[in-house]
Simulated scan of single mutants.
Amino acid sequence: MQAELVTMATDVAEFVGAAVGLNLLFGIPLFPAGLITAVVAFGILELSQRGHRPFELAIVGLLAIVVLGLGYDLLTVGADPAGIAGGLVPSFAGQESVVLAAGIVGATVMPHVIYLHSALTKSRNRCHDDASRQRLMRYHKIDVVVALSIAGLVNLTMVFIAASVFAGTDLLDRDGIVGAHRELGQMVGGGAALAFAVALLASGLSSSSVGTYAGQVVMQGFIRRRIPLFLRRAVTMLPALLILATGLPVTASLVVSQVVLSFGIPFALVPLAIVTSRRDVMGALVNRRSTTCAMWLVTVAISALNVYLIWRVVAT
């Protein structure tokens, strides 16, 4: 149940983000933009029925748009390198920064993707001996390192852009993403605002399809139930469409959904650390002691961040 809720939280964030992107680009009201996003998401999902390659190419293409768009914005706003370096030092400046930190962690290390990566690797390659498994593991490590590095850089770039343009103002608190887009165009230029909106749209479309796949893997692996992907896609759209239809604040909804992901990470990492340290399960691929220790340290750090966030919220 926890894994399914985390998957739906991801879908809310990405689906609402794509709808906001359409709204910023073409002025379409949020709810109709959400319906258009649904149609496009179904089209992307249809590619997955034609094999892994077309679906992967579509996701890579959308990801390239995100990276290029945010990279253009970062160069345009002229972020201070010294300020960027200083901002990478871990610190908190009030409750809002704790929420932001938890959201960034959740948005980067999406817990349901841990299950999805394993499922995709297993379904695509059939290994018959330890040598082939070791070779597959090397490729899998490269894939994960590249994916998480890009996700981390994208999230950091958005923070750098916001800090460079809106530092010392309360614009983001008042108007959220829509206000940020408007002011970005006025303060930096129309090209930067356009790149931001396109990147937001591409990010939402790509990640929402991944969430649908992950939800199917969770159901099939934990309770041995399988439902058609298109039915799952329709069901997981409902919370996001309700948010858009009822006029709830989209920026706050995006942030909360990412914080939910952060709370889901320990539920994926704890069993992963336990299982991968068991030789009777993993055989030759069992974790080294240093790997297991590192996993537990990361799990404890993320859990501590979540507990600290709860304490700050309750204390205030």
Rank of each mutant, 00 (worst) to 15 (best):
D130Y: 05
F55N: 03
R289W: 08
I114P: 00
L242A: 14
R225E: 02
L47D: 02
N23G: 15
A82V: 12
Y72K: 09
G106K: 05
A58I: 09
G215E: 01
L25Y: 00
Q258M: 15
G189I: 08
A234C: 08
A192D: 00
S97E: 00
A245L: 15
A192I: 12
T7N: 10
T251M: 08
G221E: 12
G211D: 02
D129K: 09
G94I: 11
V217K: 07
A119P: 00
A93N: 14
S303F: 11
F26S: 07
I84M: 14
Q95H: 13
N287D: 09
L120W: 08
R226N: 11
G87D: 04
T251R: 07
V99F: 14
T212A: 09
Y139G: 14
A19P: 04
V307G: 01
R138I: 10
T121A: 15
V217L: 05
L35W: 01
L201V: 03
V250A: 15
H52F: 13
I114E: 00
E183I: 08
G83E: 08
V255F: 05
T212D: 00
L63F: 06
S203R: 03
A41D: 01
R289F: 08
L136K: 13
M8K: 11
M295W: 12
V210A: 13
G61S: 12
T121S: 14
P249R: 12
V60M: 13
I177C: 04
V144C: 10
G103D: 03
F267D: 03
L272V: 01
L248R: 15
A273P: 00
H117I: 11
L68H: 01
A193Y: 02
W311I: 14
V281Y: 09
V154L: 13
T276G: 03
L47W: 08
L63A: 13
F222L: 15
I310L: 15
T246A: 10
G179Q: 09
F55G: 01
G189R: 11
R182E: 08
A195S: 14
A162L: 11
G43P: 04
R138G: 00
P266I: 10
D143K: 11
A38S: 13
K122I: 03
V99Q: 13
P32S: 06
R126N: 03
P271T: 08
A301S: 10
P249T: 05
G179F: 06
V20C: 11
H52A: 12
V300P: 03
G87R: 10
V159Q: 07
T121Q: 14
Y139F: 15
T292Q: 12
V154I: 15
V60Y: 12
P228T: 03
N306R: 06
A147Q: 05
I243T: 03
L74Q: 04
G215V: 08
F26I: 07
G176A: 10
H181N: 13
V144L: 15
G78F: 09
P111E: 03
A82T: 11
V99M: 13
A301L: 14
L200R: 01
G221I: 00
L62H: 02
R233N: 04
T251E: 06
L305Y: 10
L30N: 05
L148T: 09
G179Y: 04
L254W: 02
Q220S: 14
I59E: 05
D80W: 10
P271L: 11
V260E: 00
F42Q: 09
A18M: 06
A107H: 01
S91W: 04
